[in-house]
């Protein structure tokens, strides 16, 4: 049995398209709107979210048998926010430049439904190893959508990619205009909607 068919492989690969956190589970849409105006913050956010999600998943799976059912949600919050705040402190002390760009994302990560959603739906009932794979898989699934949305928004919204102009001046001279709507949150809704439509029709029978 190949890795991709094994249970581990499934846990890792399913969230990429088939059970994508944004497109199928519709979690984490808030941050997909907020940080996708440009590619750079989207990349940073994707990395942060993947790290936090994986760590929280593993910790939750390790202590899953000790968490009282009545206060499990608040326990997720405690673990996630402690992790994020701790990381923020360390960044501020040792790599201040990076922390200046990251600090604004901290609040967004704590409130990101994917982290809590995966803790509740997966980590609480699985081993730490599987939770690790699930965290990585969902982090990657989230990143794919975020990067795709940011790519289209930056390209058609401001004619740039990663801050560099890519739409040639000649095109502007011919009357081409950047689409200002894509710079605003509704623009992201359209793109996410189109992505969901495309993925639904491509992978119809597979769920």
């Amino acid at each position: 049995m190949s890795f991709s068919k094994s249970k581990e492989g499934q846990v890792l690969s399913k969230p990429l398209i088939g059970a994508n956190p944004i497109m199928v589970q519709t979690l984490g849409v808030c941050s997909a709107l907020a940080v996708t105006v440009q590619l750079k913050p989207a990349i940073v956010m994707s990395l942060c979210l993947t790290v936090v999600l994986t760590m929280s998943n593993v910790i939750m799976a390790c202590i899953r048998n000790f968490i009282p059912g009545k206060i499990r949600i608040i326990t997720y919050m405690l673990v996630i926010s402690t992790l994020v705040a701790l990381a923020d402190q360390i960044l501020k002390a040792y790599v201040y430049d990076i922390s200046k760009t990251l600090s604004v994302f901290v609040g967004l990560i704590i409130t990101n439904c994917i982290v809590m959603g995966r803790a509740e739906a997966f980590a609480m009932t699985n081993t730490p190893k599987m939770a690790l794979l699930d965290g990585l898989g969902n982090g990657a699934g989230y990143s794919i959508v975020l990067l795709a949305v940011a790519f289209f928004r930056e390209l058609f919204g401001s004619g740039k990619l990663l801050g560099t102009k890519v739409v040639p001046q000649a095109l502007y001279d011919m009357g081409y205009v950047d689409n200002g709507l894509l710079m605003l949150a509704p623009g992201a809704f359209f793109i996410i909607g189109i992505l969901i439509w495309v993925s639904n029709s491509l992978y119809k029978g597979e769920r």
């Binding site: 009282p68 206060i71 608040i74």
Partner: peptide
């Protein structure tokens, strides 16, 4: 019994103290 009231309070207390000490 992880779902008893006493354990729940105890767990919450310990978890909060640990997290705040860490931070």
């Amino acid at each position: 019994d992880v779902n008893s009231n006493g354990y729940t309070f105890g767990f919450a207390f310990v978890a909060c103290v640990l997290a705040s000490l860490l931070l």
